[in-house]
Design a protein around this nucleic acid. Structure first.
Lengths: 199, 199
DNA sequence: AGGGGAATAGTTGATGCTGACTAGTCGGCT
DNA sequence: AGCCGACTAGTCAGCATCAACTATTCCCCT
């Protein structure tokens, strides 16, 4: 119920645990799979963070070193396996993430909360640029979804892209509405009135 | 056009610059205003980060120490003022934030991309819990918006709450849809089929 | 047979962030 | 006249992050 502070908080750690539930693995391999399955579109992936996170997971007792292989060629690879504590952490963390929405701070929210520093006219121009970009992103995601569905990829693996699509669509609608409002003299008058004090 | 790496990247720095465009100020005061105007709902605020960010802004030449006041009582306060470079940075940064959507990694996206580690039945239960929480948050935001509008607060100061409302609403719809899908045997069958290999 | 690019695998330094702590002051209650 | 809690204001140690770097091997082209 209450939210605990995770010993390892980086979402990449969650992905690592999820990979290791399937089979023991060395870090580089985890990264490779993450990218291969496009998980890096939803989880910020960075190789150095990966090694960091693996180290932290070991310290926390969620994974353990299994063996160090050097198969005649290639650099040395350390293979890790998930522990019982790690499995417990994975499920507990997943449950929390799914069931409890957490306050986040999207960049665009920051921009909107300070929108008043710009002039209404400039805001309109900039928001229209955003609209173009959003439309492009929407097309990209929609394309990816249709293409994957056609290739017979199971629905469960596309739900995160569907999420992205829905959020992009909602944002696009909102931006369109704001642009509309900013073109009505009534709103612009109010803006200038409020901002009159400074600048 | 191209995105530069900001010398100071913390969004709190942007809020600081925006406050200082109005008048010179000491850090604590900036923090107080941020909270007073509810900007801390959109911008992650933390006192220690604030002092950090001010230091960074000084180093980058975006703000400058103006005077150190000790008015007989209270601890020493250092007042800072924005520089021309700072003003330029503020506008440039705002333009980028408004016009160019940036890839972010919301927690729920992470959860969805790994949803398959849970059982469909548990996923449904958890998503229903999320639904309740989302509805509560929606009510809160909607309440805040109506109340503020009634008090005559200008529309421009509520646009960030409107953004939050729209996003929450879209997420709620999506979660509802997912729950619906997960209750159709066809989808559950597919899930088990795909997951059959491991676990 | 050798040179260059891509892939494999991992390390490190420099910087950023924040929870926990310090420390003075005001006001009010008793 | 003394104590408590809230507010004001700032500092700091420790952990997290990531761009850039190192180093080895594979394999294709000429």
């Amino acid at each position: 119920m209450a939210e605990k502070r995770r010993k390892v908080g980086n979402p990449l750690a969650l992905a690592v645990l999820a990979e290791m539930v399937i089979e023991p693995m060395h870090p580089y391999e985890m990264g490779r799979r993450l990218q291969e399955h496009g998980k890096d579109r939803s989880i910020k992936y960075n190789r150095s963070s990966l090694y960091m996170v693996v180290e932290q997971l070991v310290k926390a007792g969620f994974i353990a070193e299994r063996e160090t292989v050097r198969d005649t060629q290639r650099p040395e690879r350390t293979v890790y396996a998930i522990t019982d504590a790690g499995r417990a952490e994975l499920y507990d963390w997943m449950r929390e993430l799914v069931a409890e929405p957490k306050q986040e701070f999207p960049q665009f929210g920051v921009a909107l909360s300070l929108l008043a520093v710009l002039s209404p006219e400039e805001a309109v121009t900039l928001l229209q640029r955003r609209l173009t970009a959003l439309t492009a992103q929407l097309d990209e995601v929609t394309g990816l979804i249709t293409e994957s569905t056609d290739r017979g990829l199971a629905w469960i693996f596309l739900v995160e892209e569907e999420y992205r699509r829905v959020m992009l669509d909602a944002e696009r609608r909102l931006v369109t509405d704001i642009v509309q409002s900013l073109q009505q003299p009534e709103y612009v008058r109010q803006w200038h009135e409020v901002m009159g004090r400074h600048t």
